[in-house]
Amino acid sequence: MRIAEEVTFGGSSMDRAAHLRGDEMAQARIWAQPEAQVLAFWRGKPLIGPEGLVRLPTDHPALQEAGHGALRIFLGCDGGAPVFALDLSAWQPENLEAAALDGFLDRSEQRHPALAGDQAFAELRAVMTRLSPRDAELAATARALFAWHHSHGFCARCGAASEVSQAGWQRQCPACGAPHFPRTDPVVIMLITRGNKVLMGRSNGWPDRMYSLLAGFVEPGEPIEAAVRREVAEETGIRVGRVDYLASQPWPFPASLMIGCRGEALSDAITIDPHEIEDALWVPREEMLTAMAGSHPRITPARKGSIAHFLVSNWLADRLD
């Protein structure tokens, strides 16, 4: 698929400068450079402005809210300027809408008094289509790393508290010496077609009328093609023949790599496993066009920016080959 890397979070070929991660003296030096940039995050939400990600100087007053020992990650270099991400989750906003933080899609925004009024911490999924490819790569990378550190503070080998190393790209156990690396979970997401129809499904707890492509985690020892066939069969009872890879998307919610595939169904009858999904249906191309336009009475598509939306859009436009 020639346009595969156009998907949101698909990458911008940023220089990640991995050779600088383990050099503490180099890290201190580049942090002190006047051109150094900091991306501020609050509870996994990046700081967004009218032009996209907000890049702050390292001495900005708002960064003082991070507190001693706040997690700082070196993301790489953008146009020669070092770029860091800093966790400001220690800051407590006033009038916090706690319920919104736990919703299906958090649309609340938090504004820091030391920042401009048009700058706010916003849920990445709500703003991802507004970001440039470079901003999207930076935001996805930082969010995934912050989430990993938040949930992996202890050594999986001996249970001792681990420490941040390699400028935020590893954790090291001081007790047994075991290194720990950021986790990425492979997930297959499938455009399953039969003639002029595409298979769509919805999970329990999704917003009303929301449907997307079927998806599931790849199991240990399982090829991608087998994972596609197994997941479709488990969720809908449909048998799948030929499977082709199309595109991939890093999905930092919290740490997946979405592996987009196309599969040809060998059967039509749907048998739902209610433990897996709530509903599934075949949607003809003409109806899918209506759904993507927001005019279908029963179906709303996956959000723009997701690989599901990307694959369906390009299937409708005959751009998969």
Rank of each mutant, 00 (worst) to 15 (best):
A4R: 06
F9H: 10
M14G: 12
D15P: 00
A17S: 13
G22P: 07
G22F: 02
D23T: 15
M25D: 08
R29W: 04
R29N: 11
Q33M: 15
E35A: 05
A40D: 01
F41H: 07
G44E: 00
V54R: 03
V54W: 01
T58R: 07
T58F: 00
D59M: 04
P61C: 05
A62Q: 01
Q64H: 14
E65G: 13
A66V: 13
L71K: 10
G76T: 11
W91D: 04
E94H: 13
A98R: 08
A99T: 15
A100S: 13
D102Q: 08
G103C: 11
G103Y: 03
D106P: 01
R107G: 00
Q110L: 09
D118T: 10
F121W: 03
E123C: 05
E123F: 10
L124K: 09
L131F: 08
P133Y: 01
P133K: 09
E137M: 00
R143E: 01
C155M: 04
C158V: 14
C158H: 07
G159L: 07
A160Q: 06
E163Q: 06
V164P: 00
W169Y: 07
Q170C: 00
R171G: 06
Q172E: 03
G177P: 09
A178E: 05
H180V: 00
D185G: 12
V188W: 01
L191D: 05
I192R: 04
M200R: 04
G201I: 04
S203H: 00
N204D: 02
G205V: 05
D208E: 15
D208R: 13
L213M: 14
L213N: 11
G216R: 07
I224F: 10
E225A: 15
E231V: 13
E235Q: 15
E235A: 15
E235M: 15
T236N: 03
R242E: 07
Q249C: 00
P250D: 06
S256T: 11
L257N: 15
T271W: 02
H275C: 10
I277M: 11
D279S: 15
A280P: 00
A280D: 02
L281A: 14
R285Q: 09
E286R: 12
T290H: 04
A293D: 09
A293K: 10
G294T: 10
H296S: 10
P297Y: 04
I299H: 02
A308G: 14
H309P: 09
W315A: 13
D318V: 14
L320P: 15
